[in-house]
Design a protein around this nucleic acid. Structure first.
Lengths: 103, 103
DNA sequence: CGTACTGTTCGAAGAAACTCGAACATCTCG
DNA sequence: CGAGATGTTCGAGTTTCTTCGAACAGTACG
């Protein structure tokens, strides 16, 4: 069992904002924005395993990502539909801003 | 001179998110959402003067609020138009979520 | 079974944020 | 000018977040 993620609607908006208010975590979300699934190890290579695990947990416990076990990997994906339902427009606004700033 | 607030477009989205990722600061923003101006002292009465000044500064430096001197008061207001231009939909999404959670 | 690989958890160290009282600055009004 | 009111700044204490190495758990594959 690994679907221990809370539904975004049960997460206070401040927790979601805090999870996204980090340049590196936001980079993770941006990479997942196309709906793909990616193994934990593919994010932010300069992080240690412990740090990566920590930040992915923050995102997961904020209801932002979902984690699925696949063999020896954990595949992470964005819960876009759930987020859009709970906080319409939030993710789009954040990703748009993030994209604009980085370009 | 007190218009030392940066334009929201010059503030990284993570700084804006961090400023909003606090229950009390979000309460301040929510009270300003109707476009009104309010004196610093009217926010979060359980805060000390120093704490209130600190949090209002965080909001101001994130480009979220504007501060105007009026005699012995400082009137704070929301920069909704600037925010909507820089990060369309962000404020609405946050305020909608905040309202739903609090109700 | 034993080795290799991927992630998680634990503990600790450092950095950053929050909070406050006290001192200060500035305006108002008499 | 002096008294009162509103906020800001400074310094310090407390808490929270971030980061890492090391130890552990589980799967895959010879």
């Amino acid at each position: 069992m690994d679907l221990d993620e809370p539904a975004p609607r049960d997460v206070p908006v401040t927790a979601i904002l805090a999870a996204l208010a980090d340049e590196n975590r936001l980079a993770v979300v941006r990479e997942l924005a196309d709906g793909s699934e990616r193994a934990c190890g593919t994010f932010v290579p300069e992080w240690s395993k412990a740090t990566r695990s920590h930040h992915l947990r923050v995102l997961r416990e904020a209801g932002i990502t979902r984690t699925r076990v696949a063999g020896t990997n954990r595949l992470v994906s964005l819960r876009r539909a759930d987020l859009d339902a709970a906080y319409p427009g939030l993710l789009d606004a954040v990703l748009t801003g993030a994209a604009r700033v980085s370009s």
